[in-house]
């Protein structure tokens, strides 16, 4: 597990920055809820009048006046975008950074098989994402308890779990890309995260675009769906798991034979 430990050390600054920023933003949102709770009915009415744009953010079916609804929209967006960016950057860099920083010669001339390197680096991504999500969830729960609101356990856990799956999916896809590119990988990773986010917004705009929901993990993180149905969307998650696995397998087979020039 030498490489796993090495990756933790290499990635610890980024890990704590992203975890810290997302946790603090979520906590700030939760604290803001107490301030704006009284005015939320008016806000809900206002937002519900924006037609399809309201639907794009799922605000037609969620009540801003409840903590659940407020959390799903406000905190969901931050956790979604922040988590997706972190997962994308970490994964898309994981293999390519060795070539862009020219450290691949050092690492790959030690008696460690490439598949071992691939496994430990993948594990490093998944462990970091898991830890980050646990810390964020803990901070959120703590904030809700501090403001004295009852914790909407089921909705909250489902929502966080969905975003965790989203991060795993994006990281799997980006890991696959990481095996193929040598430099400029961060741009690709962020581009993918942003693209998937906008695909979801577009898919919410009209019924005719709803097929796009199957192409973005943000679709199964839709707070309105999760809270109203009380469950996650299995088929969409299965598609996401497939995409994640495809990325990992692409890395697995390509990187093993890749020429390091």
């Amino acid at each position: 597990m030498t490489i796993l430990k090495h990756e933790f050390r290499q990635g610890r600054t980024a890990f704590w920055i992203w975890t810290g920023v997302i946790s603090v933003m979520l906590s700030v949102c939760v604290f803001l809820y107490t301030e704006v709770r009284g005015e939320m009915d008016a806000v809900t009415n206002l937002f519900s009048s924006f037609g399809s744009f309201t639907a794009a953010f799922g605000m037609d079916r969620l009540n801003f006046g409840t903590l659940e609804g407020f959390y799903a929209i406000e905190c969901g967006s931050m956790l979604g975008i922040g988590g997706a960016f972190y997962a994308a950057i970490t994964a898309v860099n994981m293999l390519s950074k060795e070539e862009s920083n020219k450290t691949a010669d050092f690492l790959l001339t030690h008696p460690v098989s490439r598949r071992r390197i691939l496994s430990e680096k993948l594990l490093a991504i998944f462990v970091q994402l898991t830890l980050m999500n646990l810390i964020i969830l803990g901070m959120s729960l703590l904030s809700i308890i501090v403001i004295g609101e009852p914790v909407p356990w089921k909705s909250l856990l489902l929502l966080h779990f969905a975003y965790y799956l989203l991060q795993l999916e994006i990281s799997g896809i980006c890991y696959g890309i990481s095996a193929f590119v040598r430099r400029g990988s961060v741009g690709i990773g962020l581009g993918i995260a942003v693209l998937l986010y906008f695909v979801n917004l577009i898919s919410n705009l009209s019924e005719s675009a709803s097929v796009l929901k199957f192409f973005t993990p943000f679709a199964y993180c839709d707070g309105a769906d999760i809270i109203t149905t009380g469950s996650l969307d299995g088929p969409k998650i299965a598609i996401g798991a497939g995409a994640c696995l495809a990325g990992i397998l692409a890395a697995w087979f390509h990187y093993d034979k890749k020429d390091i020039t």
Partner: peptide, 27 residues
């Protein structure tokens, strides 16, 4: 095999002693 590349690149934030330890641990 021990390999010495023509241009050596390492992890920039590491201390030399950690780098040497990392290399030994990989072996």
């Amino acid at each position: 095999v021990g390999y010495l590349p023509s241009e050596a690149f390492f992890y920039p934030k590491m201390r030399v002693r950690d780098l040497l330890k990392f290399s030994a641990d990989l072996r």
